[in-house]
């Protein structure tokens, strides 16, 4: 192994350190956390995890998060598909402006939208629902999905569409049976990024919910008072939030390079 490969290795070790520390903390008792500094749990305990799996306010929070993230991903990709197709195959009145306007929403600071969103979603009676968060996240995710999908679709020549029509396919049949399988990698990449941005976001998710749809990101911040007895619990909750992300990354590992290569993150 050359000296050069040392660099990525050191970097990865650096990346793993906080994760290791979090896992370490999650298995310690409160006593140990407050009273000593140790690199591994001397008093190993599963108490924190037990709390999370048995207390509905905790595991319910995870379910809430997964719910709105899944909702958001499916809806964003589903709506983005026809729009991306339109952008890739047609020119129409205002197309360039529409595209840029869509992209500009990716650049919007969530902080600007917090208060207006609270008012907006309350006024339509959607406050504290999964739909509210899913919809709010669509502000950023739909432009992203359209951008990524358009990139992949532009790589598929129009001749494919024309051949299908000549062969007698109707547009819906062509889209579902022929086109979508062709860009399946693109759909995977778009879904991955939608999942990612929705899963990690906290500001909107926390402020658009209160009890019924409270996500894990909000449930955790209530314990971030850093007083000793909450730290183990906090760490365990944190470790559990890493798992969906790790699973998703593992599944799309072959497409990571390709998705970034399109340069459309």
């Amino acid at each position: 192994m050359s000296k050069r490969s040392l660099v990525p290795i050191v970097y990865i070790i650096f990346l793993m350190l906080p994760i290791y520390w979090l896992v370490n903390m999650s298995f310690k008792t409160t006593n140990e956390i407050i009273n000593r500094f140790s690199l591994y749990p001397h008093e190993f305990t599963l108490a924190s995890y037990r709390t999370i799996f048995t207390d509905p306010s905790w595991y319910g929070a995870y379910i809430n998060s997964i719910t709105y993230v899944a909702l958001n991903t499916v809806l964003s990709v589903a709506l983005a598909l026809p729009a991306a197709y339109a952008f890739s195959r047609y020119r129409f009145l205002g197309d360039k402006h529409l595209f840029f306007w869509l992209l500009s929403n990716r650049m919007a600071p969530p902080a600007v939208f917090v208060l207006p969103f609270i008012q907006l979603y309350s006024s339509v009676g959607l406050f504290d629902t999964h739909i509210a968060v899913a919809f709010a996240h669509m502000l950023f995710n739909i432009p992203l999905a359209v951008w990524i999908l358009e990139g992949f679709m532009s790589g598929v020549p129009k001749e494919l569409d024309e051949t299908a029509y000549v062969d007698g396919y109707s547009f819906p049949k062509f889209f579902v049976k022929i086109f979508i399988p062709t860009i399946s990698a693109g759909i995977g990449v778009a879904a991955f990024f939608c999942f990612m941005f929705s899963w990690v976001e906290m500001l909107l998710a926390k402020n658009l919910t209160s009890v019924a749809a409270k996500p894990i990101v909000a449930a955790m911040t209530k314990t971030s008072s850093a007083s000793g007895y909450e730290l183990g619990l906090l760490a365990a909750a944190g470790v559990l939030t890493l798992i969906p992300g790790a699973i998703v990354v593992y599944f799309v590992r072959n497409y990571i390079a390709k998705g970034f290569a399109l340069g459309r993150v």
């Binding site: 994760i19 979090l22 971030s224 906090l234």
Partner: peptide
Amino acid sequence: LVLMALPLLVPWNVVGSMWNI
């Protein structure tokens, strides 16, 4: 690539908590 991508998928409040701890 997979290991390097992990920090990108950590919920942002967990990132804060991690470094807090």
